[in-house]
Design a protein around this nucleic acid. Structure first.
Lengths: 151, 151
DNA sequence: CACATATAGTTAGCACCCTAACAATTTTGA
DNA sequence: TCAAAATTGTTAGGGTGCTAACTATATGTG
């Protein structure tokens, strides 16, 4: 098979795997008012509370506008609180509520069991190689995005 | 590094790479009224015209409801037409318009050059290994989705 | 035949994700 | 100093993706 067909097939596999894993995760946590992106935010915040929205968005590699919506919903569900930053009146510090902390623990446990199941018969070397590959591709794509600014 | 942390990192890399590649592609084709999912549909249709919506959704591994809206927009942009199926009055056959055929060719060329750039310094063996891995994970996740029905 | 069931497509509603444009505030530099 | 530039968060609008519920048509079974 030539390389072009191979890369095409790779992107199809990437798209489909990504969507299916996200959907499967969502199905397992929707009962708790959670979703995949909310769970990611929850875990980051439980490790490093008091970040601004921009910092959190940057760590999750999301746009600020996307972060706003997700935090809106998380606040509605009582998972996080926006507190004014005493150092900068523009910024808001995001902290977990007690309920948010509980849910973070739940997410950790659900995520753990899902990953065990999904990666059951796959060895660590293949996973590590996959990470290398995906990060390389992601970086490439990010550089391509930035080209847009040079017009 | 233990395997759990490795799988966690893999999913982060998967999520980010998938989003960035999709975004980069969208940025390159939006000027032509196209998007990533529309491009996928266009290419399938150019290879096999006259499919029903269900068949197309199945090949693209999307839900029917998702397919409906994508085809709505493609029809609005004059890329495809819905024709009645003489064999089944419920079904509709999707065919490319002349403009759709043109755009399919354009997508082919843009996709080709993007893949060349993204996969420039990655060898075919690694790509093939990645496909194997992603397909295995996608299949696992799909099986997990179906478990939902057994409650 | 008649009724139950299955299938094709649609609509509605929720959640993401992005870009573009905006207000408030802070920082920078002439 | 003080106006220009950068940054923080927001809203608006477009485009996925899903599930659930609905209509119309086909099919299968008694």
């Amino acid at each position: 098979m030539n390389k072009d067909a191979l890369t095409s097939e790779f992107l199809e596999a990437l798209t489909n795997a990504s969507r299916k894993i996200r959907t499967a995760f969502n199905q397992r946590v929707t009962a708790h008012g959670l979703t995949y992106p909310r769970a990611r935010a929850l875990l980051r915040l439980s490790k490093k509370p008091g970040m601004t929205q921009s910092e959190l968005a940057c760590e999750l590699e999301l746009e600020q506008a996307t972060m706003v919506r997700i935090l809106d919903r998380m606040e509605e569900h009582g998972l996080v609180e926006r507190q004014p930053d005493p150092k900068d009146r523009r910024a808001k510090l995001i902290v977990l509520t007690p309920r948010g902390t509980e849910q973070a623990a739940l997410v950790t446990s659900i995520g753990h069991s899902m990953r065990l199941e999904i990666f059951a018969d796959i060895n660590s070397e293949d996973i590590a190689a996959g990470i290398q590959l995906l990060n390389k591709l992601g970086e490439r794509a990010m550089l391509m995005e930035d080209l847009r600014d040079l017009t």
